[in-house]
């Protein structure tokens, strides 16, 4: 492009003029102004990223209330910090006892997070949205889910089943 070449030549001949010096100073000042606002603004918007969650153990069921091979839906209510307020929130999980211990499945489909339901007669979880199917061990049987069901930590203390939930 001949025009652009001409201009860069012109600039070199003139050297730094009052115009270009003041222009550069104004540019630097404006960038400083922009940065002074952008820095706190970005921190403010990104603030949720730095929130640390803690694992909270919740007593959900008696150890003797879940037979081997059985799957049970249990709900519990815990106080959680929701932004500027603390609220009571209800959660539901599926408990399943295997010979190796109790597993706790989150009822969110691993595809896009729809709420799955356990059908006792078929011993499978079905997702209503895109046809995802999981077996009673939480493994994908068919449909689009990329992985098996998410599990929450479980421990048994003094005859009670406790599950861990990040709050």
């Amino acid at each position: 492009m001949p025009e652009l070449q001409n201009q860069s030549e012109k600039k070199q001949q003139n050297g730094p003029s009052r115009r270009s010096t003041l222009g550069a100073i104004v540019m630097v000042l404006n960038l400083g102004v922009l940065a002074s606002l952008a820095a706190p603004a970005v921190r403010f918007v990104l603030s949720p990223l730095s929130r640390r969650s803690k694992l909270k153990w919740v007593d959900v069921l008696g150890d003797d209330q879940l037979a081997e091979g059985e799957t049970r839906e249990v709900s519990y209510v815990i106080p959680i910090v929701d932004g500027y307020q603390t609220v009571e929130r209800k959660y539901t999980v599926y408990l399943h006892r295997t010979p190796n211990g109790v597993k706790c499945f989150d009822p969110a489909c691993t595809h896009l997070g729809c709420r799955i339901t356990f059908q006792g007669d078929q011993q499978r979880y079905f997702c209503p949205c895109h046809g995802g199917v999981f077996d009673k061990e939480g493994k994908v049987v068919s449909g689009p889910p990329p992985t098996g069901l998410v599990q929450h930590p479980v421990k048994i203390e003094r005859g009670r089943i406790l599950i861990g939930r990040k709050v």
């Binding site: 820095a39 706190p40 603004a41 921190r43 403010f44 990104l46 603030s47 730095s50 500027y84």
Partner: peptide, 9 residues
């Protein structure tokens, strides 16, 4: 008080 840079904003 709790959001990052909140007092400044």
């Amino acid at each position: 008080t709790e959001v990052a840079a909140g007092a400044i904003i």
